[in-house]
Design a protein around this nucleic acid. Sequence first.
DNA 1: CCACTTATGTACCGTTCCGTTAATTTGTCA
DNA 2: TGACAAATTAACGGAACGGTACATAAGTGG
Lengths: 225, 225
Amino acid sequence: MDSQQDSPTGKGSQRARWKQDPEGVRSNILAVALKEFSEHGLSGSRIDEIAAKTRTSKRMIYYYFGDKDGLFQKVLEEAYRHVRDGEKELHLEDLAPVDALRQLVEFTFEHHRRNPDFIRLVMIENIHNGDYLRKSELIRSLNQTAISRIEAIYNKGVEAGLFRKGILPVAIHWQISALSFFNVSNRMTFSQLFGGDLFDEKGQDQLRRQIADSIIRFVSSETPA
Amino acid sequence: MDSQQDSPTGKGSQRARWKQDPEGVRSNILAVALKEFSEHGLSGSRIDEIAAKTRTSKRMIYYYFGDKDGLFQKVLEEAYRHVRDGEKELHLEDLAPVDALRQLVEFTFEHHRRNPDFIRLVMIENIHNGDYLRKSELIRSLNQTAISRIEAIYNKGVEAGLFRKGILPVAIHWQISALSFFNVSNRMTFSQLFGGDLFDEKGQDQLRRQIADSIIRFVSSETPA
DNA sequence: CCACTTATGTACCGTTCCGTTAATTTGTCA
DNA sequence: TGACAAATTAACGGAACGGTACATAAGTGG
């Protein structure tokens, strides 16, 4: 969720020191809209409010994105891309299966934790029955790597006799996602109902290790130390 | 989310065959509003639309609930009460720790699955930073039983040498909630990104057993059969 | 430097939507 | 049965909001 200062169209931009800056305006709108949507939801956000926080005018939003739905659609796509990009920092190829899995779980946990805007956007998208995701070819293509990454680790672990057979990689991914996602999505209500101890810095460290343990135990053929 | 047919004020009602029916109207509004809010969110819902689906008029909503926020507040409280009531069916006292825990997990999983409206309401409440929950004295009081129920099972398990020490009951509850909640809350996006196999009847049966296994393994001192 | 496309700002329109005003009907109880 | 409170209806006001019309500036290619 940084971007934005690269106004004069970053990509090998031949045209420097311009007054007009389509790409910059576009991405500025997207950044503001992401924040606004993730804060207030789709119908809770106001186009006028978004426009006001932009460096440009309301007219530009309609010029580039057509309407409110179109804007939300693009915001969602941009957010998915940004988050999936972040996951590329992860390199697990030469780790032992158990270490790789622990690494993956803890990374996912932290990654979600650092991107609450994205999480909230996905919550909102789920409230809208995934309608905007459905319309996006782009996004579906970004996600199969998550499964194959797990599959590689899992298969390696099974071959080494460390993991038990018969678990679907997608089920492992589901469980990792669930725990990492819930940690952000339901923080507000959970901490109000059951106290905030799990969510301060120390609590989160414990939780992160704990869910990594949990996932490892889940797939292990024996109890891990 | 049944209720509602008990119009002539259910509670040992002395006044039968009435034309006016305050309690009936009130609960009819709440039922319609629950559905509407859980479907469209707080700002996405229209008071006029709710009123239209009611057996009464818009004015009555304001008469009984003040404004939109007040209505949402009461809907939330009502939903929590209803769901917590449903949990009273559960009796685990005389089961062995492992069986009790499995029972509790599978029950929670199914219970969430059967109450998607409630789940969606909680998602919405989280998007609004838990503001409405915060204002409700009522709700907080309903929830401590969830923790003590787990604590009883866990302590029994530890004493019997079946469970390992050093886990917080609230962390166990957190994990059960996360898995059961995510299963409903993120169904739309998850199934679109990774396929729907986990969510048909067979997939859900497997998932339910699987997460029960997972929780049990998590607390166990040894690998379970 | 001119014709044409792309980008941007201003002012405005029609509708939706929350909430209210004012009056009426229904029931209570002394 | 009549005074008073509770419940309910119909119609409306006014602000908020999504979207557009129109004018114009900035940039491009010939």
